[in-house]
Amino acid sequence: MNLKALLKALTGKQDSKDVAKERLRLVLVHDRASVSPEFLDIIKEEIIRVISKYMEIDEGNTVIQMHRSEGTAVLEANLAVKAIRRTF
C-alpha cells in the first residue's frame, strides 16, 4: 500500500470517482428498467391472459409496475383473484 492509499484508508474517505461510478451504476439500473406505460400495458394483458386459464382475475384491481430495489430492477405484479377455476 502506498502512502496515498494508506491516508485514504485512515481517513475513510472515498475517491470521488468511486462515488461517481457507484451512482452511475444505480442510476443506470433504474434507467434501463424504466419502460413506457404502453409497454407495461402489453405485459399486463399478456399476464392476465395466461393466469386467466387457471384463475378468474379482477382486471380493474390488477397493478403491474416496475421499480428499483437495492440495486436491481423489480417487476411487481399484483393480481386480484376473484375465483380459482375448478377444472384444474
Partner: peptide
C-alpha cells in the same frame, strides 16, 4: 484520474 477524481477509461 490519477488522483481518483475522474472516472477512468476502464470504469
Amino acid at each position: 484520474v490519477k488522483r481518483g477524481d475522474m472516472l477512468d477509461i476502464d470504469d
